[in-house]
Design a protein around this nucleic acid. Structure first.
Lengths: 189, 189
DNA sequence: CCTTCCATGTAACCGGTTACATGATTGC
DNA sequence: GCAATCATGTAACCGGTTACATGGAAGG
């Protein structure tokens, strides 16, 4: 792996148009961050490396006295991006603290476990709300160009998080049902 | 956050019984790693830190000439674990290269995008197979103790990855349908 | 005038992985 | 005898975050 994944995030966003580092970071924060985050501490140094390697080209476009560099993808940058997109290998990595807690929940009371499920549900619901609020704008921008109205990754995000909300609810319902079976009312304490 | 999440992984696994560092790593590799991975490079140093802080206690139990230290949770370790489990905050972080590629797929042909979906589907299917193979053993071990037959986190994993497989298939079907609408057969090339 | 946004950066830190090193035990 | 597994560790590296620093521009 020559380039970091974050480098491809930059390349990919530049493919869609010229951008400054600041704009890239703003875009990341409302789009890829749901499956690939990036901070200034990565973006600015990476922009330099990519320019050194000739994959992107920056032009100074100051706004008044404020310095400003707009980057665009070069032909070899476009090739690199395409090469990565077509490469077969793909990684998947998850760090889900809520699930980790549920994994250890055997030591908790049913009520405490329900609280865990609730926290997880809220987190997914909040993400879902955020993603859904993006749909109208995406639809408007994309149908002019004849693209599918909702981008695939956004569709995935919305469906996944609503699936997760449902799972939390179903599991909570199951737990509650277990907690009060007809023949075992006072099981706990 | 005093302790790292990985410390809680160790605490949580020790809650279920005494273990060596090696055993902890082996357990992580078949359980938490799907939502929280950990390597030897973290586990052994962390075991030391946790012992220094009195959250776990190690006993030398050599096997012949081979050194071996078995750790168990102390009372204060049990308290720390419980404190974390009940703490409301929870983080969620995903790094999904397949989704990232799909996000940039506008630059690809439909056929190339289908290949992306296929790779992602295979990855989820492989994980799903692995998780499903664990069900019988989990069931057998747990029903003796009157616990729910399938642990929550395993249930979540199985359902999530099969949802993901379905999503990939549905999206592929949609793409194929778009590619050959009755009135626009030779759209591409 | 003041706040918010635009814009660019860096140094310190940290969590985590990889690769390496070592050697005993068990089971075929 | 050999391979797989058990067992413990560490040093170098790396990707990434946090916190900090700076200052102009735009809009109310």
């Amino acid at each position: 792996m020559e380039l970091s994944k974050t480098a491809y995030v930059i390349l990919g966003l530049l493919q869609m148009g010229r951008r400054t580092g600041y704009e890239i970071k703003s875009l990341v924060d409302v789009s890829t961050r749901f499956f690939w985050a990036a901070s200034y501490g990565q973006i600015y140094p990476e922009l330099r490396r990519l320019e050194e390697e000739g994959l992107i080209a920056g032009t100074s476009k100051p706004q008044g006295a404020r310095p400003r560099t707009v980057y665009k993808l070069t032909a070899s940058g476009r090739r690199a991006l395409r090469g990565w997109l077509l490469a077969p290998n793909t990684g998947y990595e998850l760090r889900d603290e809520g699930l980790l807690k549920l994994f250890f929940a055997d030591a908790l009371t049913p009520e405490e476990t329900l609280a865990l499920l609730d926290t997880k549900r809220e987190l997914h619901q909040a993400t879902l709300d955020q993603l859904e609020s993006q749909v109208p704008a995406a639809r408007a921008a994309r149908e002019l160009e004849g693209l599918r109205p909702v981008p695939m990754a956004l569709d995935y995000g919305i469906r996944f998080h609503s699936w997760a909300v449902d799972w939390c609810e179903a599991m909570a319902a199951e737990l509650r049902a277990e907690g009060t079976p007809a023949g075992a009312a006072a099981e706990h304490r």
